[in-house]
Design a protein around this nucleic acid. Structure first.
Lengths: 202, 202, 202, 202
DNA sequence: GATGAATGAGCGTTCATTCAT
DNA sequence: GATGAATGAACGCTCATTCAT
């Protein structure tokens, strides 16, 4: 595929992201995408097989972006707590960024069970998230601040679950000023659960 | 409102629940509702203002059901751990029940930000959930198994976040056999985070 | 199916027939059908599965009408030549009627190879036509005016082929005044071929 | 027009013929033509005014090909029956060739009445066919095997009608193995009708 | 000469909503 | 109370045509 075509496709994906972020997943029309991209109605179908194809690529793009952002963040830190903090910071990002990306992601969740392509992409996203969790937990165990008998798989699953759960609850409440509050809750709860020596996650 | 009218409305709501559980939120048509309810197409519009009105009542009904179920469960227990366990057990319910109710609830989440009625209902649901959390955390502090300086508000928020996060991740993976696994992870993580004496949730 | 529904469906079929007769098969839109039927655009899809379903029923209706008309005509006569004459007369009908029905039929022919439903209906039409031919040829042989060793199958095929060939050529020339001329040619050629004692159709 | 231009136009016409033969007249797109011709999408509009212009030239090309083939065939023979046989042989050609050319021709028939250009081309084709018929009938009368009082115009019209009628019926049945059967029926019927001394075509 | 990205009118189809019965 | 026929706006999608390169 040519550079130009690739650029056009990205332009359409970004337009779709913006359109969904503002108008919502379910009311998204091809006309919306065209309008946000500043092109004509037919362009989307010219560059993508169909609307579902756009959404699939968008989900992949969004989850990749979220993961990359989080992955890069934890690489900057070299302690378990440092990485964990960076992870949560990256996941929460800023209120604006979060709405732009994570809100669109939530819209996709409802579609996962109706679209195996979406499910596949989400499964990959989970895999990526768990790998971040494993990296943090392993390091914490090496550092001796996390119990050595802690089940890494379980822990990484619970980390992502709590992050998603907190983000969703924050987003649903639509109070931007609670952003820091939820971020703190998320991080504190993670630290508490991971550093408990009466660990049950075994 | 007459008993008959009330009965008809419930019949329609249950039919809608079933229809969404099987066919999905976005492909739900009034014809579907009528088919599942075994009535004619016009009935829905006769008993509800419009489709959105049905969905609003359904969301209310579903969140009430989820809450009631969880509330009743914790009333059976009289220790913090007992109540917490009962809470998670009730939230996870059975795979089938969970799909029936929580999957529909996830479908609604994407709509919350576009519909203030939906948001209001979800806010009420959160309030209810937090009250369950508060009850458990308070009792745990009285029992002395949870740190006395733990922030009850934060703890109750984190409890619900983790439950929702775990449920969503489990549902998205579509592997029924992981139901117990996720339930265990959820409960163990909650206990670990709540019983940590190096508590940071303060 | 109720009487009323059946009536509506017929109304739509007749509207489609008229629309195709005037505007052509390929430019026919659901809006055209609605306009000709004097109803709204959605009606067609309410009473038929889709556009193709309308066309299928229309082809069946048209071929049935053509056959019935021809069948009834030959029942009025009791000699081979009388029946043959009646057959050709009925097939040519009047210029107006012929345009209304046979022109639409020609439009369908191009679709037969792309639609097995259409092919099935056309095959049935051919079967019906051949049965008329067989009846005439058998009677002619009994009367002794057609060679007794004439192959009835072949003869009935050639009869319908000539009728269709003449009708198509007449219709393509779009000279209404040639209607009688072509009808005469068709009948004379049929009689000539069927009464030739140096018969080769054996 | 330059040789190159002429060559390109022929390339496009042949590609169109192939595309229609395989995909059908109504689903033919300019993209199809480009694909079959192995050129880019814009080429067709560069060498032809528009799509209809391509089809017009294609119809002309196809009818000319059919006629030429038939004309050349009868020039090889020198008796009426020989020429008639050669005519029918040429018209039926082989199953594959017939599908390639005559099936496309049938697709055009439905358009004739909506496009005066198409009609003109078809009228010319009929003229050519009738001239073949006249040549055969005249020779047969000279040879004394066809009645001298036979109407040459009528006879030539009936000859082409039967040929087209038989070809269409054979094509519609989509049974390749009936090719010889229909060819035989066509020829035998023609001979029977033309050699009948009780001739009515007068 | 040739390309193929872009356009936008127009298609078939869906479906919430209305309303006569 | 209940029905379901009818409506028509709005959707995803196709494709002939245009035109900058």
């Amino acid at each position: 595929m040519s550079k130009l075509k690739e650029k056009r496709r990205n332009q359409i994906l970004i337009a779709s992201l913006q359109a969904i972020a503002e108008k919502g997943f379910h009311s998204l029309t091809l006309q919306d995408i065209a309008d946000y991209a500043g092109v004509s109605k037919g362009v989307t179908n010219y560059h993508f097989k169909n609307k579902e194809d756009v959404l699939r690529h968008l989900l992949e793009w969004v989850t990749d972006k979220i993961y990359e952002n989080e992955y890069n963040a934890i690489q900057q830190e070299h302690t378990a707590i440092g990485k964990l903090t960076a992870y949560v910071e990256a996941a929460f990002s800023t209120p604006a960024e979060n709405k732009r990306f994570f809100r669109v992601y939530i819209d996709f969740l409802g579609q996962v069970r109706h679209n195996s392509n979406f499910k596949e992409i989400n499964d990959k996203f989970y895999d990526n998230c768990w790998s971040i969790g494993r990296e943090i937990v392993s390091l914490g165990q090496e550092e001796g601040i996390f119990p050595s008998n802690m089940d890494i798989e379980k822990a990484s699953i619970s980390i992502r679950s709590l992050i998603d759960g907190c983000l969703i609850q924050w987003l649903m409440r639509e109070q931007e000023d609670l952003h820091d509050y939820y971020k703190t809750i998320c991080l504190e709860t993670l630290i508490a659960s991971l550093t408990n020596n009466n660990v049950v996650n075994q």
